[in-house]
Write a protein that binds this DNA or RNA. Structure first.
Lengths: 226, 226, 226, 226
DNA sequence: TCTTAACCGAGACGGTACGTCAAGTCTTCCT
DNA sequence: AGGAAGACTTGACGTACCGTCTCGGTTAAGA
């Protein structure tokens, strides 16, 4: 699912990837026949492993394609064939690590759900190399439109989709008004946390998680008197 | 106040700066005998101008010291004598532009103050090149500890200091409880906005400003029922 | 005669080529049984055509097997199966073009024969792409022992064999002494011309041809007084 | 005199070289003031030494700029700043070795002079790495116009200039006709020898030297009967 | 008719070297 | 001693080809 090539920003190799997964169905459908020698899955794995290693050691900026190739025992071209930039490679490597760490909790109350969710996020970014990677990636995305788009599509949106479900459940339970702008709520929740992650001015404590959730839950439950 | 050299993170040129401020003269007077040719203020200005130009054109990552030097008609060493890294240079250039755009409003209500403040920030980052620079700087700070520290010290803290005053006034007016954690409030306020700036998933509209402020003000005014 | 495979310097494919042309007879001879799909003659032709095109456009050094394959609509392996190196391929392509342009004249006098022969050579190398190819090939042969050997065997020797006949006829006619070293004569004749071709310091004019022949003929007819 | 940079085919660094030679006259003349850090002579020497080593080991084609740089303990850019191509670098390295080995003999007779001269050339190309380099250079010059021009200018012409003097002395002595085309004579002399060097079909023996000279001397002394 | 062997085009593989760029430092002459 | 210039070493960039190796698919001759 999180296979290589998916972060591709160039156009070229899409078909190959698609063919590798859909492929050769008996139906006459669109798979365009994967000609030539197929891409080596072992190379995929070696590149991913080397990338994660270097990402943890030195961050996105400190890592070079050259060294990824050398550690993976792979030619540079083999990497460039799959990913169009360092950022895309790093993002794919990051995704594999980060994604499954973000569960969809269901505690029965909005407060409980938000706390669990934010706590999981905080844990992932403070206890694993994912935090550094995430900061680096957001940094790299500032001057790489493609990377930014891919980040939104592959990291941000899937997460937010999960989170919207939590809010929808709270609405269904009558905890919060139906008209609540879910986007704003999510920006407040993760924005505050990401702020501390990126700037490092204050620590991401459990206390912080609780306070943030408290303000938000209170804020949307009882609209302020004008 | 925002003169060159102040962002220095490396060790090299410190002495000069220190000498400029502290003494070393045997005499009681302050002047520490500035031997040699004094630094050219014209060079300072030319470097700043060239940096701003390039920053707007290409962002922090796309700009090279080499080109700044060439555009400013200045030797590379002249830049390195004043700033220890690309980030430090960019930050100084950014500060001159950004700082004065953040006023301390006093509308009489917390809601009004927060709105005015956040709106000013949004305006600055969406209507001027400052937005791009800010994102780039935060990005660069992810793999540059010195730059990160300087950013907190020179950009973040001064701003937050202003904002704490707003909150203190609200407490004094009895609008919000005295025990309110001002840091959390500020992280929510600017975290949400910065989230949208950095990730670009949604626009920074006036509506967004209003909604964010509304949730926060409500959240801290009336603590949620357990 | 100038079919593909003949320039092979490696050992591998010899048998195949031989079998393809001779062989397969029911007779008791050693026919090694040419099993499998026979080599495509169309591929041969396409490769030759593409090679000649590129040779004329860019010379030996500027041509890549990769592009030959692509222009010929052929896999790289199909080329490597037939020729062991770029030089061998280029030499075969060159031979087809060059060989038939070198006739064996018979004017009745040594002077006439030499003139006709050298003039034909000069014409071939100045009026057709053969000149450039020849220079390139000799150049490539400087660091490719196999190519050098093949060049001598397939280009130089056949030509010199022809030329020795001219000299033998002159000896038979009594024009020149029987003890004349034919090799030295030929080295003088073609060495001088090739010198100008390779170095390009002076043009290969008819006047030059005449003068060269004149000196040589005079030099071998009447040995200099000690 | 044979300093680096002189073989430059690009335009850039000329001034430096010029300044190095003309330079700094007290007069107001054209010296363009050699600003910036001067080029390191030690780097020059290290590059030359490494180039000669590799040239002898592997020839022009087998040598890479990358390895020259690494052996010389020098950045690639430092080489590219001085020479525009591998050929130019090799030629400069070759020149230093080859040039002084070609004396101007004066034996009193044309035959003696030519023999001495050709023998010296043969000795240089068969007994030292110069022979291989020379072949390689001529080969490389086939697809490098700049290199070819430089070769003619720096290697061929100086040598021929010397040789023309020998012929002029022979004319002055009345050994050969005043109208003799000296260019043709030289092309015959060195063409024949170079032919054997480049193609390697026959050895460059003393016997060969003698025979070649004999034919040429006889050929120009007594014009053949029509 | 069915193997089976060698071919076919395509294209990925691990590599090497390319020529360029920018980094931050050093060295010269000039002010 | 600062300044402009431009050299220095280092190291990564992304590209082009190298010669080899799979793929899925022909195309014969021999069983």
């Amino acid at each position: 699912m999180a296979g290589p090539g998916t972060t591709e920003t160039g156009a070229a190799a899409r078909e190959t990837g698609a063919a590798g997964r859909g492929a050769a169905g008996a139906s006459g459908a669109g798979s365009p026949a994967p000609r030539g020698r197929p891409r080596s899955e072992q190379a995929d794995r070696a590149i991913m492993a080397a990338t994660l290693e270097l990402l943890a050691e030195r961050g996105v900026a400190g890592m070079s394609i050259e060294e990824v190739a050398s550690r993976a025992g792979v030619g540079k071209a083999t990497i460039y064939r799959r990913w169009s930039s360092k950022g895309a490679l790093a993002l794919d490597a990051f995704l594999g690590e980060f994604k499954q760490q973000q569960p969809l909790p269901d505690t029965g109350t909005l407060r409980g759900d938000l706390r669990a969710e934010l706590r999981a996020w905080v844990r992932a970014v403070t206890r694993t190399p994912a935090g550094r990677m995430l900061g680096d990636l957001i940094g790299a995305a500032q001057h790489d439109k493609d990377l930014a788009a891919t980040y939104r599509e592959r990291v941000l949106e899937p997460l937010r989709q999960q989170h919207r479900i939590m809010l929808d459940r709270a609405i269904a339970r009558g905890e919060i008004p139906a008209g609540t702008d879910r986007e704003v709520v999510l920006d407040l929740l993760f924005g505050a946390a990401q702020h501390r992650l990126l700037l490092g001015h204050l620590p991401l404590t459990d206390r912080f998680v609780r306070d943030v959730v408290e303000v938000i839950v209170a804020g949307i439950q009882s609209p302020a008197p004008s």
